[in-house]
Amino acid sequence: MRVRADLDLCQGHQMCLGEAPDVFGFDAAADVVTVLQEHPAESARPQVAAAVKYCPAMALALEEDNDE
């Protein structure tokens, strides 16, 4: 899986950090999310999916890698 963040949509709510803190970070200077792990382990899927689902700005996406 691949995690994507649309920084143009991100509003800095940081909900994703609460759901998947090992995958998402925060750039305080830019007030936007950072993706710490673009390809997190499969075991992180539930947390990443929750972060995507609960993002108020709908700035996150979870994509399936075609390479797998």
Rank of each mutant, 00 (worst) to 15 (best):
M1R: 05
M1F: 05
M1E: 06
M1V: 05
R2Y: 04
R2S: 04
V3N: 08
R4S: 08
A5D: 01
D6V: 04
L7I: 08
L7C: 05
L7E: 11
L7H: 09
D8F: 09
L9Y: 04
L9D: 01
C10F: 02
C10L: 02
Q11A: 14
G12W: 09
H13Q: 06
H13I: 04
H13M: 07
C16S: 03
C16L: 04
C16R: 04
L17Y: 09
L17Q: 14
L17C: 13
G18S: 03
E19V: 02
A20F: 03
P21E: 04
P21V: 07
D22P: 03
D22H: 09
V23S: 00
F24Q: 10
F24A: 07
F24T: 09
F24N: 12
G25H: 05
D27H: 02
A28G: 03
A28C: 02
A28I: 05
A29M: 04
A29K: 06
D31F: 12
V32Y: 05
V32T: 06
V33I: 08
V33G: 04
V33F: 04
V33W: 05
T34P: 05
T34C: 11
V35Y: 01
V35P: 03
L36M: 11
Q37P: 09
Q37V: 05
E38S: 15
E38C: 12
E38P: 15
E38D: 14
H39M: 12
H39V: 15
H39E: 15
P40K: 01
P40D: 01
P40C: 00
A41P: 00
E42S: 12
A44E: 15
A44Y: 14
A44V: 10
R45W: 07
R45Q: 12
R45F: 08
R45D: 10
R45I: 07
R45T: 10
P46S: 08
Q47L: 15
Q47M: 14
Q47R: 15
Q47N: 14
V48E: 01
V48Q: 05
A49T: 10
A50Y: 13
A51P: 14
A51T: 09
A51V: 08
V52N: 00
V52P: 00
K53G: 01
K53P: 01
K53I: 00
K53V: 00
Y54G: 13
Y54M: 12
Y54S: 13
P56C: 06
P56M: 04
P56Y: 08
P56T: 07
P56E: 08
A57R: 14
A57N: 10
M58P: 03
M58I: 07
M58C: 06
M58R: 12
A59Y: 03
L60E: 00
A61C: 09
A61Q: 14
L62Q: 07
L62W: 12
E63L: 13
E63K: 06
E64G: 11
E64H: 10
E64P: 11
E64C: 07
E64A: 11
D65H: 11
D65K: 10
D65C: 09
D65L: 12
N66R: 13
N66P: 11
N66T: 13
D67S: 09
D67M: 06
D67Y: 04
E68G: 14
E68W: 10
E68M: 10
